[in-house]
């Protein structure tokens, strides 16, 4: 199945400079790229090359120093923080390396949180959360706290949380970084399946070649710039 030939993420000349007064760090230097709807893209590079910074800038979690980022044709820098936050709640999902579940909430409560925040009714949110947990095969653990789940289970819950609001774009920063190979493969398999089934766009920062191999395209970065950007041999998004 072909994905839609439309850029959902467009970055042009994106620069990010961190200036603490004594030290200036150019985290991104004039980065330009485009991601099509339904594409699954891996971003790779050595530590400190700007991968996570790129992810944060593209997703609106961080502000640009210069350049532009458009999501679905809308310029991010023109959005107020309030609008960006709403945008994130309704149209984006996040998967972090450290799982980042709120420890005081159960798996179910963690997953329903984005829906509640965006104004969904409690019953509806609960139902959707349960479905999302079932989708990632941890439905039986919905009443457990994160500390009671294994690493793989926690990451699955994170995946469920990122998808419960049916986002158009899912941002994943080292989603398998804290998992063993078996769990990593399971989680990646889950993500690719969802990419195929729901046509969601995935941008995945990773160190792992195995993970990159499962994506459509790999962008390599070095010294805050894009070094290469090419399709992978395997078309992971296609069945």
């Amino acid at each position: 199945m072909a994905w839609q030939e439309q850029y959902v993420i467009e970055a042009n000349g994106v620069c990010k400079v961190y200036d603490s007064g004594r030290v200036t760090v150019e985290a991104l230097r004039s980065v330009s790229l485009g991601v099509k709807r339904g594409e699954m893209v891996a971003v790779m590079g050595p530590s400190g090359c700007g991968k996570t910074t790129l992810l944060n800038c593209l997703s609106g979690l961080d502000d640009l120093t210069s350049g532009s980022v458009k999501i679905d044709g809308t310029e991010l820098s023109e959005m107020s923080d309030r609008v960006k936050t709403k945008y994130r709640a309704q149209r984006m999902g996040y998967i972090f390396q450290a799982f980042n579940l709120l420890p005081v909430l159960t798996a179910l409560e963690n997953v329903e949180m984005p829906l509640l925040v965006s104004g969904t009714g409690a019953k509806q949110a609960r139902k959707a959360a349960e479905e999302a947990l079932d989708m990632v095969s941890v439905g039986d653990w919905k009443s457990h706290y994160p500390a009671e789940l294994s690493g793989g289970q926690q990451q699955r819950v994170t995946v469920a949380r990122s998808l419960v609001n049916r986002p158009e774009i899912v941002w994943a920063d080292e989603p398998t970084g804290n998992l063993d190979s078996e769990n990593a493969a399971e989680v990646m398999g889950l993500m690719t399946r969802l990419n195929v089934e729901n046509q969601q766009t995935f941008v995945i920062v990773t160190h792992s070649d195995e993970v990159a191999a499962m994506t459509h395209r790999t962008i390599r970065m070095r010294d805050s710039r894009i070094e290469s950007d090419g399709a992978n041999g395997a078309t992971a998004g296609q069945s």
Partner: peptide
């Protein structure tokens, strides 16, 4: 601090 980042990432506005 980190959890606040997550909250903001999943859609908690500043006021929330």
């Amino acid at each position: 601090r980190h959890a606040i980042g997550v909250m903001r990432a999943v859609g908690f506005s500043r006021s929330v």
